[in-house]
């Protein structure tokens, strides 16, 4: 029991993934600044933001709508993200526990934050939040099927093993899945899915701060908004980590392997940041057809290739 709590709250759960995620979010902002020839924020900026929101700012509850659901939604988001972090990182860091990393459980846990955002935004009673919430919902509907296809492709490549542990072991024993045609295609599709899951720029129509003024999060202030920020930090760490486990050989945590593990995560975050800095925001209609038609086609192509062993 105590060890499970430790897994959940400290390592590799809440504390660890939040700190790493916050540092990654600084990395993301710094790269963005460098791309625009700016200097960028100091290293601890994400921590200042988080503690300011948590400790200093007042929390305002919506007059219309449902305050309880409004306050609970960020809590659910943090719990979903943390649980997913634990279940992804335990197999990835090779800590043996009862759980072997069932992909379907992880898949469902990873959707909880986005769903909580939708619930929270609809509970706030703000029309712009409702617009944001409906966009987020459409976005979830479109990218989740693609993400599921990516996972299916990985399962086929891993000779139908369903758990993260075996997938990582198979890659260790032969070669990383990305070193094949279908692996590369799956990686590309997965990157776009992660971009949409994180709500980064081509797919940030649910927040769209210049258009519907932060949409989903418009009514959040103070501590609940701090929890949303926390969820975002955690997601920014565990989604690249999940992708590393699925396609990039996981982590080998000894000697030079630690450096490689860090470089893999940083590389994926760098890719996400560069995509977000070189693209304009899509309309929700374009995003839906992008995923439902093009990305699904690519993913199915990859699955067929994987089936024939390419």
């Amino acid at each position: 029991m105590a060890v499970n709590l430790f897994y959940f709250l400290v390592f590799p759960g809440l504390l660890f993934s939040a700190v790493v995620g916050a540092l990654l979010s600084w990395f993301d902002r710094k790269i963005t600044a460098r791309v625009q020839f700016r200097k960028g924020p100091p290293l601890l900026q994400p921590f200042y933001d988080f503690f300011k929101l948590l400790l200093v700012k007042e929390t305002i509850l919506p007059k219309q709508g449902s305050p309880v659901v409004f306050l609970l939604a960020p809590v659910f988001a943090v719990f979903g993200a943390t649980t997913a972090a634990v279940l992804i990182l335990l197999p990835l860091l090779n800590i043996s526990s009862g759980f072997r990393g069932d992909l379907i459980v992880i898949f469902y846990l990873l959707t909880i934050p986005s769903f909580s955002y939708v619930i929270g935004s609809l509970a706030s009673g703000n029309p712009l939040a409702a617009v944001g919430g409906s966009r987020e919902m459409k976005l979830i509907l479109s990218y989740e099927s693609t993400f599921l296809l990516v996972i299916a492709g990985v399962i086929i490549k891993a000779s139908q093993y369903f758990d993260l542990n075996s997938i990582i072991t198979i890659q260790h024993n032969s070669r990383p899945f990305i070193e094949s045609v279908s692996g590369v295609i799956l990686f590309i599709v997965a990157i776009f899915c992660i971009q949409a899951k994180l709500g980064l720029v081509p797919f940030d129509m649910a927040e769209a701060e210049t258009e519907i003024t932060e949409g989903t999060f418009i009514e959040y202030s103070g501590a609940p908004y701090a929890l949303i920020k926390l969820t975002k930090y955690i997601m920014l760490f565990i989604l690249p980590a999940f992708l590393t486990a699925l396609l990039l050989n996981g982590f080998v945590l000894k000697g030079i392997g630690i450096l490689w593990a860090a470089l893999k995560i940083l590389g994926i975050v760098l890719l996400l940041t560069l995509i977000r800095n070189t693209n304009p925001r899509l309309k929700i209609k374009q995003a839906v057809s992008f995923f439902l038609v093009w990305m699904n086609l690519l993913a199915i192509l990859a699955i067929v290739l994987a089936y024939f062993g390419y």
């Binding site: 600044a33 700016r38 701060e209 932060e214 418009i218 908004y225």
Partner: peptide
């Protein structure tokens, strides 16, 4: 803008008064 870059001090422009 790049020349003055207020984000150095952690200053961001936000879209909602709640933030």
């Amino acid at each position: 803008t790049p020349r003055y870059d207020l984000e150095r001090f952690g200053i961001l422009l936000v879209g909602s008064i709640r933030h």
